[in-house]
């Protein structure tokens, strides 16, 4: 259970880094979407992130960006620990992706990053409190069995 939550946190953090990279590329160089996807899929950080490769694959085959993003999310979700609220949120990012000016794109990224960060933090806390609980339960069980053995 805890391992699955940790995986979920890692995946959310990966998406946060992805949206942050998109935001930087747009703010710094107004990078066109096709070039952006190419750069991200080749970057050391996202080379092993199947989601971005799925998006690029769909987009390169002339699919509209929103459609490509959502198809990729569906493919990625098959092996992901993300829950429906995160998937819906990541999907919603594509509605405005590439369809506004620089400021609009930056605001869109910030909006979605902020919520993902809040969820990641919330899950981190829950993982930590659960591990503390497990740790305490382990110690208590140990003491209990020791008393029984004595």
């Amino acid at each position: 259970m805890s391992a699955r939550v940790r995986k979920r946190v890692r995946e959310i953090e990966k998406f946060i880094r992805l949206l942050t990279s998109i935001q930087r590329q747009i703010e710094y160089a107004l990078t066109p979407t096709d070039v952006l996807l190419q750069k991200l899929s080749e970057s050391a950080e996202f080379r092993d992130f199947s989601f971005i490769h799925f998006v690029k694959e769909e987009f390169d085959s002339e699919k509209p960006l929103e459609f490509a993003w959502n198809c990729a999310l569906q493919k990625y979700a098959a092996t992901s620990a993300l829950q429906s609220r995160e998937k819906e949120w990541i999907s919603a990012f594509s509605e405005a992706f590439g369809s506004t000016d620089k400021n609009g794109q930056s605001a869109n990224c910030t909006f979605f990053i902020t919520q993902l960060e809040a969820w990641a933090e919330e899950l981190q806390k829950s993982v930590q409190s659960k591990s503390r609980l497990c740790y305490a339960l382990g110690i208590l069980s140990g003491i209990f069995f020791t008393i029984l053995l004595l």
Binding site: L30, T31, P32, T33, D34, P64, G98, T100
Partner: peptide, 13 residues
């Protein structure tokens, strides 16, 4: 319009 600018309106300001 969206297709023509490669889904990159920000690059075509």
């Amino acid at each position: 319009v969206t297709h023509a600018c490669g889904y990159s309106v920000h690059s075509h300001q």
